[in-house]
């Protein structure tokens, strides 16, 4: 309840500052529309925005799921095999030197204008943080537990399954929280480069037609959806971590 009030308070404050900024600067509506204009644009185009938002969210969710899955599998393989660490890890770091943004046109060229280039963009942008966070967790299992397993003559894969993975769940949760914020960025970049639907596409379209209020409305919906996604992933992660140990 207190949290809801706080969020409402902060939102009201931002809207007020925004309104005052419009009044003080006297900027025309095609440069900076007032909150009221954006709200009007939002409600009069609700169906249109909802359609594009659903496309973007589908890309984000699939990208998030696949990226997380790929990150988890990579982290476990790296943790299991020193050889994989030697070969794959430098490649992963090198791949981060390549801006994901620069890959968007190539992906669109290869995969067309549909959902897939955006899903791959979302996937690529979250793959590294998920892999990195989970891998670090897998490599930091308390020594005492590993000593115990060694004295018990445990099998490496069973140590991974019964000790190292469960011990690294909080680290994976940190990676997933980051991923929930990054994934929409990937999808939107993909949509900017080439798309026929999605919030990123709608924003470009509205901008081109000088419908700045609609562009802001789409931007706000995107921000709210990202916050909701982050909040949901955060809650889920906290629930899982808490339940794991109590």
């Amino acid at each position: 309840m207190i949290r809801a009030l706080r969020i409402a308070g902060v939102t009201a404050l931002i809207l007020l500052l925004w309104h005052l900024l419009v009044l003080a600067t006297g900027l025309p509506a095609f440069i900076l529309p007032s909150p009221a204009r954006v709200a009007t644009a939002l409600f009069s185009n609700l169906e249109l925005i909802a359609h594009h938002a659903s496309v973007t969210m589908a890309e984000v969710m699939i990208g998030l799921l696949l990226g997380a899955l790929l990150g988890v599998v990579t982290a476990i393989s790296l943790a299991m095999s020193p050889m994989a660490r030697l070969v794959v890890r430098p490649m992963m770091v090198l791949s981060q030197a390549l801006p994901v943004f620069a890959l968007a046109p190539v992906l669109t060229l290869w995969l067309g204008y549909g959902l897939w280039p955006k899903i791959i963009m979302a996937l690529l942008i979250i793959y590294f943080p998920v892999t990195s966070a989970f891998f670090d967790g897998l490599m930091q299992t308390p020594h005492g537990m590993l000593d115990l397993a060694k004295v018990m003559q445990a099998r490496p894969w069973l140590i991974m399954r019964h000790i190292r993975i469960p011990a690294a769940i909080p680290a994976l949760a940190s990676g997933l929280r980051l991923a929930a914020v990054y994934a929409p960025i990937g999808a939107i970049i993909g949509e900017w480069v080439g798309a026929s639907q999605g919030l990123g596409y709608l924003m470009l379209l509205a901008n081109g037609r000088a419908k700045i209020d609609l562009m802001f409305a789409a931007l706000i919906v995107l921000a709210v959806l990202t916050l909701v996604l982050h909040g949901s992933v955060d809650r889920l992660c906290r629930y899982v971590v808490q339940r794991q140990n109590s």
Partner: peptide
């Protein structure tokens, strides 16, 4: 001796999960 030993340390090393 390997395989005939068990170990108990100051920290209990219980798996919290």
């Amino acid at each position: 001796i390997a395989g005939r030993i068990s170990l108990m340390a100051q920290t209990d090393n219980l798996m919290p999960w």
